[in-house]
Design a protein around this nucleic acid. Structure first.
Lengths: 251, 251
DNA sequence: TATAAAATGTTATAATAAGTTAGATTTGTG
DNA sequence: CACAAATCTAACTTATTATAACATTTTATA
């Protein structure tokens, strides 16, 4: 049945354009890394893909199905993947997990295992990514789509999210500074994040260091409102201090 | 004896598309593995299937009861594109349009112009497709995702859709018959479609002719409830008559 | 019922795929 | 530039699946 797997693999890469090997091992978790290597060799031989260190890129109709959104994804890809790897440990069977909209949460969505837990999200693209697996339940809020980051927000989003219970919420921000806290660019999105913070037992902020010392119009929370903050590396001492004081665990 | 089993085997493979040998030995547990091997040899000789290591794949139309989403997409692609071309004329600037979840509505979503109108949908993949344009406003309902056809449904979906106003709704069905009307496979999805019919000024059913004379568990409306029906070609006289009597315009 | 022919089962062996490990290569970082 | 970490490659081992040869059972028919 390896040809079936290779077909699936090819299709997956075709849809994504670029994939990482890590991602592939979580999606094709029934075979070993080496098998995936060999499958990629085969597909490359076949002229369908080009292998690149850490992953592969599709050759052919150029990302016909991909939103332009994906382009930004390349930026800080490494950092986001590192963050996602740390974050994925917080996901357990039976729990209910919220994914904020963003490229970092998308990186996380790619790594989540095919176990049974509930995923709630405000991002249609994340919902579709999670839905590739068979076991998780996928729910999303309604609302109006903001193209710049593929978020749903608005009153219907709020009404829906008001009703759900969340064990772990993975949030992202567009900017963070000690003065302004965690900020984003749209009021309606700040409202959604704010509501999630109220509803979630555990709040985990995923933030690559490029967000540091940036401040956008709307603050949706401060350090005191979150439980964990996951970055790709060390934070400046001042920030780390403030986090410790606010009871935030840094990972 | 063996021809009966081979018929059953062929049918089984046809429904599944791809099967593994393990699967077959559990289903046809009254015969040995070797017999199944020989049956597969026979069916391959006959041109019905292709053997592959560990299993076999069916050749020809896959007549599954509930074909997986990806497979269905390829099926009748031509028909769906023809339907979409006829349907796109109903979309005008300034109006608010609902897209049901399905491969036909996805084909339509690919054809819509980059004008300013509002799109509401219950399908995240359609939302993303429309969002590739810059001018339309994209909204979607919340709910829980059904992987087989990428629909959102459930109470949050209903609550959100209750509030919207729709000029034109493009609906699809999984089956249609004169006795059963328009049917689909999930009650919660029937609820959504039903609500849309109540809320929409104009209801347009997109249906390729493969849906004719199929009946699924849940009827969500009849001919009298819709305004237009768009198919890829002529319908049988009886159906056309019934449509005319119900005031449905066929395109 | 006896017998030949066909179908099925059994077993052994070959072919292929997948897993494992160790070592080579590349990349990032101070 | 040198070191450590990550990634890739290649060789070898194990497991799975396919094939072939032969034995047994079933079926059809005189």
């Amino acid at each position: 049945m390896n040809s079936v797997r290779r077909e699936r693999l090819k299709k997956y890469i075709a849809e994504k354009g670029i994939v990482s090997l890590k991602e592939l091992t979580t999606i094709f978790s029934d075979v070993s890394l080496m098998t995936i290597h060999r499958d990629l060799d085969f597909l490359e031989e076949d002229g369908k893909i080009i292998r690149m260190r850490g992953g592969a890129r599709y050759i052919g109709e150029i990302s016909a199905h991909e939103p332009s959104f994906e382009i930004r994804e390349v930026e800080n890809r490494k950092a986001k993947e590192q963050i996602a790897e740390k974050a994925v440990r917080f996901i357990h069977s039976g729990s209910s997990v919220f994914f904020d909209a963003g490229t970092t949460t998308m990186a996380l969505a790619r790594l989540i295992p095919d176990d049974s837990f509930s995923v709630i999200t405000s991002a249609p693209n994340i919902a579709l990514e999670v839905a590739r697996r068979t076991n998780p339940t996928v729910s999303m809020c309604g609302g109006t789509l903001n193209r710049s980051n593929m978020t749903l927000s608005g009153t219907s989003a709020m009404e829906m999210l008001e009703k759900v219970n969340i064990d772990v919420a993975f949030l992202v921000c567009t900017g963070f500074s000690l003065e302004g806290g965690f900020t984003c660019g749209k009021e309606s999105e700040a409202d959604v994040k704010n509501l999630i913070i109220k509803k979630a037992r555990t709040v985990i902020m995923l933030m690559d260091r490029s967000k540091l010392n940036k401040m956008l119009p709307f603050t949706f929370c401060g350090l005191k409102d979150i439980n964990y903050m996951i970055c790709e590396g060390e934070l400046p001492p001042k920030v780390a201090e403030a986090a410790a004081k606010a009871g935030v665990q840094l990972l």
